[in-house]
Write a protein that binds this DNA or RNA. Structure first.
Length: 802
RNA sequence: GCCGGGGUGGUGAAAUGGUAUACACGAGAGACUUAAAAUCUCUUAUCCGCAAGGAUGUGUGGGUUCGAGUCCCACCCUCGGCACCA
């Protein structure tokens, strides 16, 4: 009987004492392998099955690569800044510094119990000043490169709590805490110009990433080719309305223009009579969350501004409206409405009785009516003066060229991607290292003054401004440029900034005089394997690529993609449902670890299904993994030294070993650990019957080592192994050893299986066919029939068509 | 609505166009035991049949092929992501 608990404790202690997993960062004899998992947020809850499902198989992969001869670096840390610790502080008064320290310590303990190869000496904690000093350095690098700028942008505002809310804290347009209606407030905030990198971020060359993830990033970046068109405004307004469109071929069908409610042009064009109505509408739209505003099938709404604009292509006079179906965050915050050829414009025009003019018809002679619905396909132009009869694709180019010539428009590539808002009106984050001086304007904190320390003595109860703004000792400083009185920026940074460069820090963790050692980083980066949840496809993974590209362009690093291979773990469900606190179906690993040990728990997680697909947790299912561990233990740690000649079918055993090695390797490589474990189970079931000699035991123990590290170490030691099994090589297989002497051949008649025969490997086709015909069931079906066709697939089957 | 996964026994799931359901859970029967647990052995897709055997069967309907879970077309369901994107 395998007693997991003492064995696991023994080996975890021995690994730690020997510093087995302290990476040999300067060893260049072996090829490097940077095996990384997305670092956790140190929450107050215990580790859940989801953590294990992520970390344990990822560690098995690392152990496998180590046994394959790689110098594996497997670091871990904590993404410890962020909202939950601050909210916990507001609720309980416990300072985030304390709660985070406690949570990190406990989580470190629990993570160690998994039995991973983490190099704790390289731990990174994003809320440590020794780390965030360099997060601030990253900010300043972008600032100095002109990639950080300030502009006014709306935030969710709860008037009752007197605070800014994250999207997550807004539920159905109301504050999750006090349920009052959430509105918007404009604040001046810092942004990173990630849009400048949109084009480069679309290039995934050389990356081994899931197709799905690359596609999601492409959609998120949302490149489209179109045109901008300028509409002059009547009545002496100097500004013009610039719209972005991908369908400039429909310009003759534009019957009105729409501005987003937040568009600054609204105040400038609105007429005296319409001012009140328009302002009321703007107020109303502030209360609408983005989600509401973008709800499908929602009734369109809008207000006429009283203004008119001129269509530059034909001089038509069109009314200017305000409507919230136009978003300030996309394109130019204004659209030309062509109800005949756009569904949203069509619905709006129907409601407000605006004219609908068809200007495109399908190619060919068929007619289409735009009375009931918009025709949104490309086609051939009509009602478009000299462009009548021109195809949409051609018309788009020609019309834009004319507009360009008349300085009324141009070609434009547009992206959905918005610049990255990094300001947070929060306490628990890295302070933005900028100083505001009356005379010098905004001044970056000099590198040698970093970190800008987050003060500890702070009142984090919401008072309507950033908590740091109320700490005079923090705020009041002197200008690094002129020495005069100055104030600090009171906002902190988005935690995505912290996590967008931590992988660069790991090899140089604790380094005092810089963010990372250039040589070490060049050696270890890029990350060879990055494992984490698919929910990070568009935010974290895009930001990390962006920051890496920027640091490359500035000359700090000599690579510009951080993660070469990416794998997402699937979701562990319980009875088919996502585990969540609110459903109360969260499975805690603790009792299972106590009962079966971490190796069994790890193996069961891997056995549930393919890693990327996730699986369904079953309290009973784990017994299968436990029984297997026991059987493996019994077989391998038997005191009886079976000699090769005592094995009942030694040649069969050899073949079985090589076949299992092949299957396990293939399973691990494909992250289908379930099939690797199934192959091991099959082997044990077989070897229990035939017996197994010492040499083959040693192969099998090395084979299971990445999947059940403690168990393997213990058996390895029992079998006379020195030191650690993870310094041994992973077993290879010999294809020649896989060859069977005989093989079973399936026989089909008219595509239906009618029998099987066993023939020698390499038997002649005629011999096999004759044997197939002679098979008694087959013979019955062939009797009296003419065989029209015979198909012979060597080693597989014979098929007769009669 | 768009994009991307997926749909196979009672359950989790295997299967380079070539014997569908490996491996495991559960269930049933038996061995050991005073008994139970644990362990071991056997059975376990459905239907007909005492059996030998036969028929049906991978969401639905078509197609390609000697042969389709796998390829093609249409559809249904489900999960995830994005969503009034001009």
């Amino acid at each position: 009987m395998y007693e997991a608990s003492p064995v696991e404790k023994k080996w975890q202690k021995r690994w730690a004492d020997k510093g087995l997993y302290t990476a040999a960062l300067h060893d260049e004899k072996r090829p490097k392998y940077y095996n990384l998992v997305m670092f956790p947020y140190p929450s107050g809850d215990r580790l859940h099955v989801g953590h294990w499902y992520n970390y344990a198989p990822a560690d098995s992969w690392g152990r496998y690569m180590r046994m394959r001869g790689y110098n594996v670096f497997e670091p871990i840390g904590f993404d410890s800044f962020g909202l939950p610790a601050e909210n916990y502080a507001i609720k309980t008064g416990v300072h985030p510094v304390q709660s985070i320290a406690a949570n990190c310590a406990r989580m470190e303990q629990q993570l160690s119990a998994i039995g991973t190869m983490y190099d704790w000496s390289k731990k990174v904690v994003t809320s440590d000043p020794e780390y965030y000093a360099w997060t601030q350095w990253v900010f300043l690098q972008l600032y100095k490169k002109g990639l950080a700028y300030r502009k006014r942008a709306p935030v969710n505002w709860c008037p009752s709590c007197n605070t800014v809310l994250a999207n997550e804290q807004v539920v159905d347009g109301r504050c999750e805490r006090c349920k009052s209606e959430v509105t918007k407030r404009d604040l001046t905030q810092w942004f990173f110009k990630i849009r400048d990198y949109a084009e480069r971020l679309l290039n995934f060359e050389g990356l081994v990433w899931p197709e799905k993830t690359m596609l999601m990033q492409k959609h998120w970046i949302g490149r489209s080719e179109g045109s901008v068109v300028n509409f002059m405004i009547e009545g002496g307004v100097k500004e013009m309305i610039t719209v972005y469109t991908t369908r400039v071929d429909t310009l003759y069908g534009c019957t009105y223009v729409v501005l987003a409610p937040e568009n600054p042009l609204v105040e400038k064009v609105v007429s005296a009579e319409q001012r009140e109505a328009v302002q009321a509408y703007q107020e109303l739209s502030k209360k609408e969350t983005d989600i509401n505003r973008s709800a499908e099938g929602r009734e369109k709404s809008g207000v006429f501004t009283g203004a008119y604009a001129r269509n530059p292509i034909n001089g038509d006079r069109v009314p200017v409206w305000v409507a919230d179906y136009v978003l300030m965050t996309y394109g130019t915050g204004a659209v030309m409405a062509v109800p005949a050829h756009d569904e949203r414009d069509f619905a709006f025009a129907k409601k407000y009785e605006l004219p609908i003019i068809q200007v495109v018809k399908p190619a060919g002679s068929e007619k289409v009516s735009v009375k009931e619905m918009a025709f949104t396909n490309d086609g051939v132009l009509m009602n478009s003066e000299e462009f009548d009869g021109v195809e949409s694709v051609v018309a788009r180019r020609k019309i834009t060229e004319i507009l360009k010539h008349e300085e009324a428009g141009d070609f434009r590539v547009n992206y959905k991607l918005r610049d990255w808002l990094v300001s947070r009106q929060r306490y628990w984050g890295a302070p933005i290292p900028i100083i505001y001086c009356k005379d010098c304007g905004d001044v970056p904190v000099p590198d040698e003054q970093l970190p800008v320390l987050l003060p500890q003595n702070v009142d984090f109860i919401p008072r309507g401004v950033s908590p740091l703004a109320l700490v005079p000792e923090f705020m009041q400083t002197s200008c690094p440029r002129c020495g005069g009185k100055a104030e600090r920026e009171s906002d902190t940074m988005d935690t995505f900034v912290d996590s967008s460069w931590y992988f660069l820090r790991y090899p140089s963790a604790r380094m005092k005089d810089g963010p990372f050692d250039r040589e070490l980083t060049s050696h270890w980066m890029p990350v060879d394997m990055y494992i984490g949840g698919p929910e990070h496809a568009c935010m974290h993974l895009l930001y990390a690529r962006f920051i890496t590209m920027v640091l490359h362009d500035i000359g700090h690093i000599d690579f510009d993609e951080p993660f070469t291979r990416l794998v997402h773990q699937g979701l562990v469900t319980k009875d088919g449902a996502k585990m969540s606190k609110s459903k109360g179906n969260v499975v805690s690993p603790d009792e299972f670890i106590e009962r079966y040990g971490s190796d069994v728990f790890r193996m069961y997680l891997m056995f549930m299904g393919p890693f990327e697909a996730g699986g369904d947790w079953s309290d009973q299912g784990i017994t299968g993994a436990a029984r297997f561990a026991d059987r493996f233990w019994t077989l391998m740690s038997s005191r009886k030294q079976t000699q090769p000649e005592e094995v009942s079918d030694f040649r069969g055993l050899q073949r079985n070993v090589h076949r299992t090695v092949k299957k396990v390797r293939e399973g691990i490589e494909a992250f289908t650990f379930n099939t690797a474990i199934a192959a091991l189970m099959e082997f044990v079931n077989e070897a229990m019957k035939t017996g197994i000699d010492l040499e083959h035991r040693k192969i099998m123990v090395r084979l299971i080592a990445p999947l059940a590290p403690h168990l393997a170490e213990e058996i390895w030691e029992f079998l006379g192994g020195k030191s650690t099994i993870f310094d041994e090589s992973f077993p290879e297989f010999d294809p020649a050893m896989l060859i069977e002497e005989s093989v079973e051949i399936a026989i089909q008649v008219n595509g239906k299986l009618r029998g099987t025969i066993v023939v020698e490997v390499g038997a002649e086709k005629d011999t096999v066919l004759a044997a197939a015909r002679a098979e008694e069931h087959v013979a019955k079906y062939l009797e009296g029939a003419t065989v029209k066709k015979e198909i012979y697939v060597p080693g597989k089957l014979v098929s007769f068509v009669v």
